[in-house]
Design a binder for these strands. Structure first.
Lengths: 231, 231
DNA sequence: GTCTATACACAGATAGAC
DNA sequence: GTCTATCTGTGTATAGAC
């Protein structure tokens, strides 16, 4: 049941267009365009432009004129796809969260062995953040611009993914494979390492570290901390 | 030579006013106010206000009207202390970097023993980021708004602090105390954990984890990864 | 040194032609 | 569906009174 970045990518590479289609279907009230194919294609252009601009200067510093230029659509056309700038942010956020939850769920139940589950959970998060890096980066950096309700959703997803790790660690402790520890702290630290991968992606690129190598390092780090010394 | 957060704090608590004085002295060209005492006091008020607002909504979303209100000074008065908004950002950045470099240097040479140096370097960074959290948070989040030259300075400081760790790890390897590893990757991971402390401070506060506890956890994590198994 | 009032640019958003 | 032109609010920055 082991998988590497290449296998992970093949499974999830078609997800970008799919996400745009989901967004179209779930936001019919605010999207004025009726032709689905055209809408999906333009949404993809818009999101690409948003990620491109806001990874440089931030979402809130991105003007609608910037977005118009980068996406090749006029201001008027853009407003056919969302109610206002805040709404655009909310749509992106909501859909990204749904995607993450689906993927991580799928990869956290593949084995009864806590060691394998730990490996799998750590790798899936890193690989996913590699494929959907603009989204991860964006969510982290723009958290301050979210509404209170949206922020609460982000916190819940954070807690949810942290809990996946905590439960694996607990299971391992019960089976006497992992040491007894403050598992919440361990999970936090694991998440901190995963987070570094998408926040400091440039640094790792320069050093030519692949997603597989990074994931292995994190896993090795965690295992040396968690395993009973017999291992 | 061991120190805890309390001892660290006592040594550096008076640094905030000192920083304002340094800033005043080093930016005489752009600061129009001639009375030093008044200037230092007002700079302190301004920086406090900047950190308070921009930790909520970001520096670039902070308007000068916001800053005027929060600091209790008028727009006109504010512009006596810096040339423009960009200049204000640069001043804060420059001074913070100087402070960090000084403190970390002071704490990275206190022993010949690589274990002690590793402990000391990790703790000093976490404690410093606790005391100057607004500054750390601010630098990280506003990196995108810096000029190219400023960004280069930030990268250099990053590389510098990472190198402190790498050298300790190398020394430990030479002395056969630490395992042979990719020390750059290990240092990156250590920095990722330290970074989490100031980026996700709210989470750790909720869980009532103290700086001392967090530092010990990080150290334990790192040691279990680095030490030769005889330890 | 600090205030109030204001200049001028640019933001988000929409109306109406095509 | 998409464009251009334009409304209105808010941004940074400064001038000039005190």
């Amino acid at each position: 049941m082991e998988f590497d970045f290449k296998e992970f990518t093949e499974k999830f590479d078609n997800s970008r267009k799919k996400i745009c289609r989901d967004i179209y279907n779930e936001n019919q009230e605010s999207i004025k365009i009726k032709n689905e194919e055209r809408a999906v294609e333009n949404l993809d252009r818009i999101f690409k432009a948003v990620f491109s601009i806001s990874s440089k200067k931030g979402f809130q510093a991105m003007s609608m004129r910037d977005l118009s230029k980068e996406s090749g659509m006029s201001m008027g056309a853009l407003y056919g796809y969302f109610k206002n700038k805040k709404d655009l942010l909310a749509i992106i956020q909501r859909q990204g969260r749904a995607m993450i939850k689906n993927v991580l769920d799928a990869f956290s139940i593949i084995s009864e062995d806590p060691c394998k589950r730990l490996r799998s959970a750590i790798k899936a998060h890193i690989f996913l953040s590699e494929l959907a890096r603009p989204w991860f980066f964006f969510t982290f950096m723009e958290a301050r611009n979210l509404s209170k309700a949206e922020l609460e959703e982000v916190r819940e997803l954070e807690a949810y993914t942290e809990n996946i790790l905590v439960e694996i660690l607990l299971l391992g402790e019960e089976k006497k494979i992992f040491k007894k520890k403050n598992h919440y702290l361990t999970a936090s630290i694991i998440k901190a390492m995963q987070q570094d991968w998408y926040l400091k992606r440039g640094k790792y690129s320069l050093r030519k570290i692949t997603p597989d190598e990074f994931a292995e390092s994190v896993i090795e780090f965690v295992e040396s901390f968690c395993f009973e010394s017999s291992a």
